[in-house]
């Protein structure tokens, strides 16, 4: 569904992505791991045009993403490390905003769907709260509901649990596991190795702007083929 070929990206003279090629099939769950600064976020952000790449190509269902900006973003949902909820809107308004503004769904319809989504992430009772009154874990679950409200075909997660207190990590991972069960195509940048091992179909290991390994988790975690991956795993496990 997504084909990445020879992706390169620089910030000034700093080359951050040095030729990434991979493909993501429908229904696949991909974990992206690697040391800080290796380009994981940049890679993810290129996939929904939050960054524009310099060289190479990204095709979504055969079409170049540079030619499908708005349409692309309706297909791809994103969840950020720092939630980025809209602080001046209630939880319900956060979730209904884009469906109303972008998909032009009526308010009542959007609210009905939003309440369903809030129920699936366990936050029905918070619909009328403002984000500032929620815990980190609750905020991230709202952010997931907000992205899902656009009915995306792919969900991108950039370290969704890194900004959370340890006791809240589980509730967010649980919501993500439910998504996996529903067959959602997901690309997840994460430092939660246990989670990656459990849910991912493939692990992409990035280091210094390169895709160093692209492997099934069982093989990657037990028996990584490169020294760099070995060194990284020794540090984090």
């Amino acid at each position: 569904m997504i084909d990445v070929q020879g992706l390169r990206k620089s910030f000034g003279s700093n080359e951050v992505l040095k030729g990434i090629s991979t493909s993501i099939k429908k229904g696949e769950v991909i974990a992206v791991i690697g040391p800080s600064g290796s380009g994981k976020s940049t890679f993810l952000r290129c996939l929904n045009l939050l960054e524009t790449h310099d060289e190479g190509s990204i095709l979504v269902e055969g079409k170049d993403i540079n030619d499908m900006e708005l349409h692309l973003r309706k297909k791809i949902g994103m969840v950020f490390q720092h939630f980025n909820l809209f602080p001046h809107l209630t939880v319900l308004e956060n979730v209904t905003f884009a469906p109303q503004q972008v998909l032009k769904i009526s308010k009542s319809e959007a609210e009905r769907e939003a309440l369903d989504l809030l129920k699936t992430v366990g936050l029905s009772d918070k619909a009328n709260s403002y984000p500032s009154n929620l815990s980190g874990g609750q905020k991230q679950r709202v952010a997931i509901a907000r992205a899902l409200a656009m009915k995306p075909e792919v969900m991108l997660f950039d370290e969704p649990t890194s900004a959370l207190d340890p006791e809240m990590v589980k509730e967010v991972l649980q919501v993500m596991k439910n998504l996996v069960k529903l067959g959602m195509t997901m690309v997840i940048v994460t430092h939660e190795m246990g989670f990656a091992k459990e849910v991912a179909d493939r692990v992409l290991f990035m280091d210094d702007g390169k895709l160093v390994e692209d492997q099934e988790p069982a093989i990657f975690f037990e028996n990584p083929s490169t020294d760099r991956a070995k060194a990284f795993l020794e540090k984090v496990l």
Binding site: L50, K74, N84, F86, F97, A98, V102, R146
Partner: peptide
């Protein structure tokens, strides 16, 4: 916060 713009863009908001 820059994240506000990014969140809106990621949702396809014009």
């Amino acid at each position: 916060d820059k994240g506000q713009k990014e969140a809106a863009m990621a949702l396809g908001v014009p």
